[in-house]
């Protein structure tokens, strides 16, 4: 392919990526160094409002934002350096916690609490998704051809469900006297509250995520299973390989690129865990990094949002994902170099 054709082919997608990925990222990065404030004035304001017994008028000194000639609140944007990052990471409190040698105290700081959950969630669900994905793929591959279509359809169902809706379905099964909680209470003959402590919520989140994502891994692995070299399998059988040995020495090496692919996708997705926190309204017990960003972005009763901190926390999330992906990407890179030689 000559250079011109090559450029004509990739040009549009590079343009799109610059427009929709690079530029927004650059804006967020910029915003994470700035804070926007309303300009306030202090005035005496008289407010008359109803009470149960009649109207009451109060005069008080209030700090209120100034509205400009264009009808919008006047704001000023200041460069604040790393102050947004400091406010998210709260290093003085981290240092104090370590000085006290207290992991408990460290885990009470929002960002680190969220990071702890996000990391453990990502790293626990990953092997489970790979394992169950492979298991489902092998099962599908071994059922009779005549019913394979319906089996694939049924096993894909969890993936089709919108994440928030799926999380809510699990919530309703377990909250209060939900169907499954009632069943568990009957089974263990004791009162069970699944939403009253962090570990049960984390367990349900993990369960939900594996249930939701394993079908994706399964369908990818199932596709890979269709291209396993049958000659190699036959040779292995003739050499007396057991089922396990066939899996370990023929099938798994063949699927390796797909396993890496699913790992990459899952690391990126799971690190952005958010739907579960919203769906289970778990913010009292369990929060994630993405939820923290959302919370900074939510306007309070006065309409203020912490855009700067939200941007800083987004950048930190991106840095976190990149760090997680480096080992996997390095493996891919080394493989690629090895093959080229």
């Amino acid at each position: 392919m000559n250079k011109k054709t090559f450029l004509a082919f990739i040009g549009p997608s590079v343009l799109m990526m610059v427009l929709f990925i690079a530029l927004p990222l650059a804006t967020v990065l910029k915003q994470s160094f700035y804070q926007t404030q309303s300009v306030y004035e202090t005035l005496e304001v008289e407010t008359c409002s109803p009470t149960f017994t009649g109207q009451v008028c109060i005069k008080e000194i209030k700090t209120i934002p100034i509205i400009g000639d264009n009808g919008k609140v006047i704001t000023q944007t200041n460069y604040v350096g790393l102050s947004n990052y400091q406010n998210v990471l709260e290093f003085p409190r981290v240092i104090a916690a370590f000085a006290n040698n207290s992991w408990h105290e460290f885990m009470l700081i929002d960002f680190w609490k969220a990071l702890r959950f996000t990391l453990s969630f990502t790293l626990i669900t990953l092997p489970l998704v790979l394992f169950f994905g492979l298991l489902i793929a092998l099962c599908i591959n071994n059922v009779a051809k005549s019913i394979r279509g319906p089996v694939i359809f049924v096993s894909l169902l969890p993936m089709i469900i919108t994440p928030v809706i799926g999380a809510l379905a699990i919530r309703w099964l377990f909250i209060g006297d939900g169907v499954l909680t009632s069943f568990l209470e009957w089974w263990f003959a004791k009162d069970i509250a699944m939403f009253a402590q962090a570990w049960t919520i984390e367990f349900m989140m993990t369960f939900y995520r594996v249930w939701h994502v394993a079908p994706f891994a399964a369908i990818v692995f199932y596709a890979g299973l269709q291209t396993v070299n049958q000659d190699t399998i036959e040779s292995a059988i003739i050499d007396g390989a057991s089922r396990w040995q066939k899996l370990r020495f023929v099938i798994l090496p063949h699927l390796m690129p797909l396993i890496v692919f699913v790992t990459l996708i899952h690391l990126m997705d799971a690190y952005r865990v958010f739907e579960e926190v919203i769906g289970f309204s778990s913010q009292a017990h369990v929060i994630s990094l993405q939820w923290l960003t959302y919370d900074f972005l939510t306007a309070d009763l006065m309409g203020n949002r912490s855009i700067g901190r939200a941007s800083a926390s987004s950048m930190l999330t991106m840095i976190g994902i990149t760090l997680l992906l480096i080992p996997v990407l390095r493996g891919v890179w080394n493989d690629y170099k090895g093959k080229r030689l």
């Binding site: 306030y40 209030k62 209120i64 017990h285």
Partner: peptide
């Protein structure tokens, strides 16, 4: 609601109180 800081205060309370009730 007429106190200008009430929005931020309400949010901080809503986010911060659970840790006490949980015994953390």
């Amino acid at each position: 609601s007429s106190s200008p800081g009430m929005g931020a205060m309400h949010t901080a309370l809503g986010n911060g109180l659970a840790a006490f009730l949980n015994g953390e």
